[in-house]
Structures are given as structure tokens and as C-alpha cells.
Amino acid sequence: MTVAEQTRPGGRWTRTGVTPTDRAVTIGRYTVRFDRRATLVTAILLALVVVLVAVSLMVGEYQVGPGALWDVLTGTPQRRLDRFFVMDRRLPRALVAVGVGGGLAAAGAIFQRLYNNPLASPDIIGFTSGASFGAVFVLLVLGGSLTFGAIGAAVGALTTFAIIGVLTVLGGLRGTRLVLVGIALGALATSATSYVLSQAYLPSAAVANTWLIGSLSGRGWGHVAAVAIGIALVTPVIVLSNRAFHALDLGDTVAMTLGVRSGRARMALMLAATILVGLSVAAAGPISFIALAAPHLARGITRTPGAGILPAACVGALLLGVSDLVAEHAFPAPVPVGVITVSIGGVFLIWLLVREGLRHRV
């Protein structure tokens, strides 16, 4: 049975069985259930992602027309500049935007379902802050390059995961208390980052500060490869944990009855989400609010409170891709994409808090 989620006026998430629009496809011994509307919306979102990438390849100070773009992508460019701007400058940046946006959104969807809290996202519960501190520590204290800074970001995210995992096992933390612990860890990591920045050599601190805003400028094929490898490693874990994911939606007691080891399943999914966060921060810096907003928007447009990870990832890819286009072309001079996502995300967070407050009053 497929598990779907519904939100009642109190703002908490409850679970039901098969939704009215569920359909099943049998392949051999396996039966796969899917929601027709969610599947259609996901297909449309994927098509929009492709369109967004194509637009990103054509617009800019050097214009590339649809015909010239097709020639470049098919390996028959008419002009060298067309190939340079498309393949060397714009395509890597567009792919990193799609990969990072999708990775952050997928991580946010996992955290929100595991924590059973609509405000749970890596940039709120400390994982992004931990990754940022890891990168800044490597860059400014150890004097490492941006490549080693990326490794530091991944280590910082995994360290945060380890601390929360230990606290979960020892203290039995769940739900809201676990979110509050994550917020406290994020505050400590942010404070430590600020201290390191205040003590660093000014030019180096300026470089690190720019990175901390979140930017896709100068991204190349090395960044694309890192994000792609990370997504390829994490995707099988998420797919194989799908049954456990649905069982956990019903609660730990029911999950154990169904033969799912809830603690192990939660840790596996949290580790997968943490890897996505670490790689995303390593590739583009701490992009804020994509992980928070995208799952909510995916649930809204699919009209499925339990919308899957793929719709959320598509929405996240679109959000970051559009934000990057705005950051690059809507101002007299390009600005870091993190400025755009923070501005949009701040408004979204206020709206979300107000909405939750009104629901609790009903």
C-alpha cells in the first residue's frame, strides 16, 4: 500500500492510505503505485528544467540563437565563440545550478518527512552552517585552496550529522526537540565561522565571505562531475529506502511491525541527505532557503501532501536556475545567486510561519 500524507488544521502531518488518484503498474513480481497528477506534474517540471537550461545557454551579453545552440550541442558549431560560451562558460554553470538546486530540495524533502516538521531543512537545522564552518576553517585557518575548502564543507556537514546522530541515540530526541537541537548547532557553527572571519587576513576573509553568500560564478566541469557523482551515489540509497520511508511515515511502532528497522532507516536517509547538502555547499556555497521552499511548493502544485523527492528536486532545480538567471542578468552588475535566494526565502519563511500560526488558531 502506498502511503500518502495529509495536513489537518492543526498543522501536524497525518497519514492515510492510497489516494483517489493512485494507479498501479505491475512489472513481473513487483507492483508500483503512483499518483497520476503527481506523475504528470513531475514530467512537466522536468521539461521546464530542460527549457530553463536551454535559455541559460542562449542569454547573455553574447547571444546564441536556437539554431546556433543546436549546432553546438550536436558537435557542429559554426563559430568558435558559440562553442566557447555554450560549452565552457554557460553549460557547466547551468548544470551545477540544476544539480545543486535539486540536491538541496531533495535533502529538504527528506528532512521534513523524517522530522515530521514543515520547517525542517538543512539551512535551518544546522547542516548548512556546519558545512560552511568546515569550508571556512580549511580556507582561512589551514590555508587550503577552494578545492580543499569543498572537502572541508563536506566534512563539516558530516560532522553535524554525526553530532545529531549521537544526540538522537543517547537522548532519544525526536520531532521538534531534534529541530531545536539542530538550530542550536547551526547557531554555534555560525558563531565559530564569524570568529574565524574576524581573525583572518582581510583579503582572504573577503574571498571566504563572498563564497559564504552562495555563488555559481566560475563553475566548471569539475564542479559538474563532483555534483553528478554525489547524486549518483546517493540516489540508490534513497530508492532502496523508499519502502522504509513510507513505513516511517506511519510511525516507528508500525514500521517495526512491518519489519523496518526505524533507527537504521532514519540514519541511512539522513546520511544521504547530509551528503547532498555537503556536496551542494561544496559546489556553490551555502545557498539558502531552496531546501525549505521547494518541498512545500512541490506539495502544493502536485496537491499531494506526501509528494515525493523527485518533484521537490525538480522544483529546487527550477528555483535555483531562475534565481541564477535573475542574479546574472537582472541587475546592472551580476550579484551572487545567494542574495536572490535569501531575499525570496525570507519572504517565504515569513509566509510559512504566518500560515502555520493561523492554522493553530483554527
Rank of each mutant, 00 (worst) to 15 (best):
G10Y: 06
A291D: 03
G149R: 00
L240K: 13
A109P: 00
E328V: 13
I344Y: 15
P336E: 04
V166E: 08
I238A: 00
G65T: 11
L52I: 13
G171A: 12
S288P: 03
W221P: 06
I229N: 02
F331R: 10
G259V: 03
M1S: 14
V100E: 07
P203C: 05
T147Q: 15
I125L: 07
N116W: 10
L310T: 03
P286Q: 08
I290E: 01
T210M: 11
A313K: 13
L45C: 08
V254A: 12
N242Q: 15
A312V: 10
L146H: 12
G345L: 03
L140S: 08
T304A: 14
G278W: 07
A226P: 05
N117D: 07
A226Q: 11
I350K: 10
F84T: 11
I301V: 06
V166C: 04
R90I: 01
P311R: 01
V196H: 14
G126W: 01
V337A: 06
V166I: 15
G321Y: 01
G156V: 00
T19H: 12
E5N: 13
T341M: 14
V41M: 02
L40F: 14
I287C: 02
V335Q: 12
P311M: 03
G285K: 01
G126Q: 02
R12S: 14
G11R: 01
V281L: 08
R359L: 13
L45T: 09
A131P: 05
P118D: 02
G321E: 01
A282E: 05
A54F: 12
G182H: 01
V155N: 01
A135T: 13
W351K: 13
G143Y: 12
G285Y: 03
A184D: 11
D324P: 01
P286M: 07
G156K: 00
T16A: 15
G165V: 05
A154M: 15
R12W: 14
A208R: 09
G285F: 03
I350G: 12
V49S: 06
V18E: 15
G101S: 07
A313H: 13
I163G: 04
G285R: 04
R174K: 14
G357D: 11
S343H: 09
A317I: 08
T176I: 13
L269R: 02
T26Y: 04
V254L: 10
A333T: 08
R113M: 11
H223P: 08
V337R: 03
A272T: 00
L319M: 13
L57K: 04
Q112C: 12
T235D: 00
T74I: 09
T235C: 04
G10Q: 09
V237D: 00
G60D: 11
I125W: 04
G165A: 13
D71S: 12
Y30H: 15
I301W: 06
E5A: 15
V55N: 12
V224H: 02
V72L: 10
P122G: 01
V86Y: 09
L297W: 10
Y115W: 09
G186A: 09
G17F: 06
R36S: 14
G101L: 05
G186V: 06
L167H: 04
T42Y: 03
